[in-house]
Each structure stands twice: as structure tokens, then as C-alpha cells.
């Protein structure tokens, strides 16, 4: 999706923003019906197996359905943002209902490998302290490793692009060691570092640092030389050239490096938590598998998806702020 506008411009047939002047929000009516229908299915059909929290699940579906329905009928009840979500709300209800039917109601997808939605709800309601702590631990580890890796990678990249001597020594090292996946260091890291926490911080930093360093460096190297000529004739010092010309000009590349580094750090984080650190979402997944409690795994995966997607969104927000001057930004 390439777009220069601040808002995504989906066509009106998809967004359901057909009725901008108030009145009935028809996509909302459809969504409300879908959710209420899902509620009826959940309550009306009997479960093949015993499943806790079926009632709570149905209640949530019902409340959601009623709410959307009410908003759809009240003039100006739903804002444009919600209106744009209309079709998604409908599809979500249908998918959830189908999931409910093929697991709890018909058992086509057999337990314990497949769990109905209410089983996930049960996990969230009963195991939230452990899940919450795991998410927090993952987040802290990631924040520590990522910020160290990004900062070191950025400085390395700038130095590589700017200093011949630094480049002479660091470039071969970077080329030789950089392509090793951070996970390959895992056994060594757990052996060398005193704690598994510091070992995995190191691994996350390593996974982040390499792409950030390479892209920052290539960003600095590809700066239009006229930018330097102009600054020099205007009386710029070396310091000004680095801080006010090279770095801003390289920022679009740096951002790509930060994005790639974030992806790499997710994967090394999860592996490190599974193998060494006794905390975090990766560990939770491993632990749930040990007990064959598949609903817990699905629940943890869902949280992980939300968390990581949220972090990437944050990164893109930061990019939109710092690189607002660029034309045609990719929207996340």
C-alpha cells in the first residue's frame, strides 16, 4: 500500500462509508446481525464436549452485537473510523461462529489440538497473571536488547560511512560475522554470559544491530554528494556535516534497518525464551506444550501477535514523525 495521504483511501464500496450524513449505518446493521447470530449459535447448539465459559463467551458476543446494532441505528452513532471497520466486524463474527461450530458444536476439529474460542477465553480469565507476566518479561527483554542493538548498530553504521580507518577494520568483521543468524550464537551465549537474561539481551542486540549497522552505513554512503558540497561552501564544519547532513539524509535507510532488526529480534527473542530464559511468552508457549494445554498456546500466540504487531505500529508511527518530509511513505 503506497499512499501519500494521511488517511487510507479505501473505496467507499469496501469501507461502508456510504452514508456520511448520518442515518442508518447499514454495514453496522449487518455486523450487529452477524454477532447476534453468532450468539444464538453459541447458546442454541449443544457442545459435544464439556467446555467452560461457553456462557461468558456467548454473553460477550451478544453484548458486542447489541452494541454495534444500537450504534448502527442511532444517527451519527458510529464515527467514520468505526464505520470503516464495518465489513471487518461482520467477517470477524462469521469466522468466530464458524470456528465455534467446527470445534465445540460438531467437533470436526478434534480436541485437544484444536480449541473453541471459549477455551481461549477461559485461559485469559483464569491464567491472566502468568500470561501478563510473560508478556511483560518478553517486552522488557526486547526493549533492552533492541535499544542497545539499535544504538550500537546506528553508531557503527555512521562510523563505517564516515571514517576510513574505522571502515578498514570494522567492514571485514561486519561482513564475516554479520550474516551469522543470532540464534547460532545461542549455545555459546548461554555459556559465556553469567545470566540467561544478559545472554538473551546480547542475542537480541546482535540480531538488531547487524541490519541497522548495514543500512545506516549504506544510507550514509548513498548521500547525494551535492548535499555535502553545498554545506561546505556555506561554511559547515565536519560536525555539522555528520549531524545535520549525513544523518538526516540517511534516516530513511536507518528506518528500514530498524524495521528489519525488529523482525529479527522477535524471532531470536522467542527462541531464546524457549531454550534458556525461564520467562516470557516464548517460555509460556514451551511450557503449555509440555502440559499439552493447547488453548494456552493459542492464547499466548494471540497475545504475541498483538504485541509484536503493536511494536511495529509504534515503529512506523515514529517513522511517520521523523520522516514526514518524505514523499510516498509505505503505510503499515
Amino acid at each position: 500500500m503506497f499512499s501519500a495521504e494521511p488517511q487510507r483511501a479505501w473505496p467507499a464500496e469496501i469501507t461502508g462509508a456510504r452514508n456520511p450524513r448520518g442515518g442508518i449505518w447499514w454495514d453496522g446493521v449487518a455486523a450487529g446481525c452477524a454477532w447476534l447470530g453468532a450468539t444464538l449459535l453459541t447458546v442454541g447448539l449443544t457442545n459435544v464436549d464439556e467446555w467452560d465459559r461457553t456462557g461468558e463467551f456467548a454473553a460477550i458476543e451478544g453484548v458486542l452485537g447489541a452494541l454495534v446494532f444500537a450504534l448502527a441505528l442511532i444517527p451519527r452513532g458510529a464515527g467514520p473510523r468505526l464505520q470503516r471497520l464495518g465489513p471487518w466486524l461482520t467477517v470477524l463474527a462469521i469466522v468466530l461462529a464458524a470456528w465455534e461450530v467446527v470445534t465445540a458444536k460438531l467437533a470436526w476439529l478434534p480436541p485437544p489440538f484444536f480449541a473453541p474460542p471459549q477455551a481461549l477465553l477461559d485461559v485469559y480469565l483464569s491464567d491472566w497473571p502468568r500470561l501478563g507476566e510473560s508478556a511483560l518479561r518478553s517486552l522488557l527483554l526486547l526493549a533492552g536488547g533492541y535499544s542497545v542493538g539499535a544504538a550500537l548498530g546506528f553508531l557503527t553504521g555512521i562510523a563505517l560511512g564516515w571514517s576510513r580507518i574505522f571502515g578498514y577494520w570494522a567492514h571485514p568483521l561486519l561482513r564475516f560475522i554479520g550474516p551469522l543468524p543470532a540464534t547460532a550464537w545461542l549455545p555459546l551465549a548461554f555459556f559465556i554470559f553469567p545470566t540467561s537474561g544478559s545472554a538473551s539481551t546480547f542475542l537480541v542486540a546482535l540480531a538488531t544491530g547487524f541490519p541497522v549497522a548495514v543500512l545506516t552505513w549504506s544510507g550514509v554512503a548513498s548521500v547525494n554528494s551535492a548535499y555535502y558540497d553545498i554545506a561546505r561552501t556555506l561554511g559547515a564544519t565536519e560536525r555539522f556535516l555528520v549531524l545535520r547532513v549525513a544523518i538526516p539524509a540517511a534516516l530513511p535507510h536507518v528506518f528500514v534497518g530498524l524495521f528489519m532488526g525488529l523482525g529479527a529480534s522477535f524471532s531470536v527473542l522467542v527462541v531464546a525464551e524457549m531454550l534458556g530464559v525461564k520467562a516470557g511468552l516464548g517460555w509460556y508457549l514451551q511450557w503449555a506444550q509440555g502440559w499439552a494445554s493447547y488453548p494456552n498456546m493459542y492464547a499466548a500466540l494471540l497475545i504475541m501477535a498483538l504485541l509484536f504487531s503493536g511494536l511495529i505500529t509504534l515503529l512506523f508511527r515514529a517513522r511517520d514523525r521523523f520522516l514526514a518530509w518524505q514523499k510516498g511513505l509505505v503505510r503499515w
Binding site: N224, A226, Y227, L234, G235, P248, A249, W325
Partner: peptide, 15 residues
């Protein structure tokens, strides 16, 4: 800076 150039291409800093 006592000798200022206006280059052929009006390269402005895009940021």
C-alpha cells in the same frame, strides 16, 4: 562562506 555558490541543480535539503 565568503564565496557562495548557487549550483546548477537547486539541491535543497528535502528534510
Amino acid at each position: 562562506p565568503s564565496r557562495i555558490v548557487v549550483f546548477q541543480a537547486p539541491t535543497l535539503y528535502p528534510w
